[in-house]
Simulated scan of single mutants.
Amino acid sequence: MTTTEPVPAPAPSAAPTAPAPATRPSIPGLAEVDVRVADGVSLHAAVGGSGTPVLLLHGFPQTHLMWRSVAADLVADHAVVAADLRGYGASSAPPEDGPGTYSARTMGRDAVALMRELGHDRFALVGHDRGGLVGVRAALDHPEVVTHLGVLDVLPTLDSWEVLQGRSAAVAFHLYLMAQPPGLPEALVAGAPDAFFGHFLDAWGDGSAWLPDDVRAEYLRASRERVTSVVADFRASAGVDADDDRADRDAGRRLTMPVGVLQQHWGGALGFDPVARWAAWAPDLDHRLTRAGHFMAETAPGEVVALVRGLLAR
C-alpha cells in the first residue's frame, strides 16, 4: 500500500452557462454504440482500441465524455469502453420501481452485462464519483470478472455517509436533498436544473476555466433531461447501497483485486483518514492524492492515466 503527502485543493471559480451546441461532442477515435444489458435497458458507450479491456464509468453531473482525454491515451493499447450509467446521458432511464432500479448493485450488473455483450468476460474498471461507487459494488459482487479497480475522488458509499458530519458536511448538501422520498427533490431540482447541476461543475473544478463550452452544455443538457433518474440514483445511495455495503463489511468481504485510488484530501476538512478508510476494504491498495480538483480526469488527465497504467501493471 502506498500513499502521497496531503495537498490542499485550490479555491473554485465560476464559469458561465453556455448554449447547447448544434452537434453534440464525442470522443475522437471511439465509435458510439447502444448495448442492451437488461429487459428494457440499454447502455450508451464509446468503444475503441484493442488489448486488455478497460471500462470507464463517469461521475456526477457528467457523461462518458469526461473520459475523452484519458481514453485517447489508453486506446493505444487497450480495448476502451466509456459508458453512460443507467439513468444518465444517452443510456436508458427506466421508471424507478423500488430501490433496486438505480442501486449500485443493479448498475454493477449493467456494467458486467455491457462488457460481456462486447466480448469481454473479464475487465478492469475505473470509475469516477458515482461511477466509482458502481465500480466498488461491481468488484465486490463480481470479483471473478473485475480484474482491477480504479476509483477517482470518492469513498465507498457507507464510508461516505459515516464521515459526513458538522458544518463541513454542507459541501454534500445534494446527497441529503436527493435522499428524500420521491416527489420533493425531483421538483426542486427540476425547477432550476442548470443552476443546480452547473453549481457542481463550477464549485468542484480546479480553480481554472477547465471545461470547454460544448462539453459543459452537453453535461447540463443530459442532466436536465435525466433529473428523475439522477435523483433516484442518489436516493438508492442513501438507502439500499449503504445497506449493501454494511452487509459486506459485517461479513468481512473485501476487494480482492488490485485497487488504485486518486482523490483530493477532503479527509482533512471532514476529519477522517482516507487511506485507512480505503485500506479497510482494499488490502492491495495504491492510494494517491491530487490538487487537480474533483474533475481530475478532465483537469489532470495525465495523473489519471498514470494511476490507471500503474494499476494495470500490478
Rank of each mutant, 00 (worst) to 15 (best):
A31F: 09
E32Y: 14
V33Q: 11
V33W: 10
V33H: 10
V33K: 05
D34G: 13
D34W: 15
R36E: 15
R36I: 15
R36C: 13
V37D: 07
A38Y: 11
D39G: 04
D39M: 09
D39T: 07
G40Y: 11
G40Q: 06
G40W: 11
S42G: 03
S42E: 14
S42W: 12
L43C: 06
L43M: 06
A45M: 09
A46N: 11
A46W: 08
G49M: 10
G49Y: 15
G49C: 11
S50L: 14
S50D: 13
S50N: 15
T52P: 01
P53R: 12
V54T: 00
L55D: 00
L56K: 03
L56D: 00
L56W: 00
L56R: 04
L57S: 00
L57A: 01
H58N: 05
H58P: 08
G59Y: 11
F60V: 10
F60P: 02
P61M: 05
T63Q: 08
T63Y: 06
H64N: 10
H64K: 04
L65T: 02
W67M: 09
W67F: 05
W67N: 07
R68D: 02
S69K: 14
V70I: 04
A71Q: 03
A71V: 04
A71T: 02
A71Y: 00
A71E: 07
A72E: 13
A72I: 02
A72D: 11
D73Q: 15
D73N: 07
L74T: 00
L74Y: 03
L74I: 04
V75C: 05
V75I: 06
V75E: 14
V75F: 04
A76C: 08
A79L: 15
V80L: 05
V80N: 03
A83S: 10
D84I: 12
L85R: 07
L85E: 04
L85V: 02
R86P: 05
Y88I: 05
Y88N: 11
G89N: 01
G89V: 04
G89I: 04
A90L: 09
A90I: 08
S91P: 07
S91D: 08
S92H: 09
P95L: 15
P95Q: 14
T101A: 10
Y102W: 05
S103E: 04
A104S: 13
R105L: 13
R105M: 13
R105K: 13
R105I: 14
R105C: 08
M107C: 06
M107N: 01
M107V: 02
G108W: 03
G108L: 12
G108I: 08
R109M: 06
R109Q: 09
D110N: 08
A113N: 13
A113R: 00
A113F: 08
L114D: 02
M115F: 06
M115S: 02
M115K: 01
M115L: 07
E117N: 14
L118C: 02
